[in-house]
């Protein structure tokens, strides 16, 4: 289970200082920040802008372009369900519908108890054994409704 640190400007400053001099530093820095805080906190944007000599609007533009970056911390677990064609071909859409209904949320939603966030993903490279997913760091293959139910139980 991933655990995130509460926002700390000092911590963010350290992360930014360590990576800001690499060529094309912004994407790696955004990954580093999200890894630590679970999202890209608004307060990090002016700090990134200052360190990289960019405008806040430019930083926002990059953050919003990429599907990975969140503006709010996710639930305690992240379930990424593959929605791409090879998984569709083996019933992935029905599995995804079941998972969302079972959790009572929509894509990108987090359960009210904060246990789980569900995100769509377009191919995990597990296309020979779909429907595929990732639960936090663990890849999952050949999902069906029963396995989804079991997963939901284990994280609750």
């Amino acid at each position: 289970m991933p655990s995130y640190e509460p926002w700390s400007a000092a911590r963010a400053e350290t992360i930014i200082a360590a990576g800001k001099d690499a060529p094309g530093a912004l994407l790696p820095l955004l990954h580093d920040l999200q890894h630590v805080f679970g999202c890209i906190p608004d307060a990090a944007v002016p700090m990134l802008a200052a360190a990289l000599n960019l405008s806040r609007a430019e930083i926002h533009g990059v953050v919003s372009f990429y599907h990975d970056f969140r503006s709010h911390p996710p639930g305690r677990h992240i379930l990424k369900l593959c929605r791409a064609e090879a998984c569709q071909a083996v019933g992935g859409e029905a599995v995804a519908r079941h998972a969302l209904a079972r959790l009572g949320i929509d894509w990108h939603g987090t359960t009210p108890d904060g246990a789980m966030t569900v995100e769509p993903v377009y191919c995990l490279g597990l296309c020979a054994c779909g429907p595929s997913a990732m639960l936090d760091e663990a890849p999952l293959a050949r999902l069906d409704a029963a396995r989804v139910d079991a997963l939901v139980e284990t994280v609750r």
Binding site: A84, E85, A86, G125
Partner: peptide, 12 residues
């Protein structure tokens, strides 16, 4: 950046 569904050669 192997994003095509159905591909995994780069990953492997």
């Amino acid at each position: 950046d192997e994003g095509d569904s159905g591909t995994y050669a780069d990953r492997m």
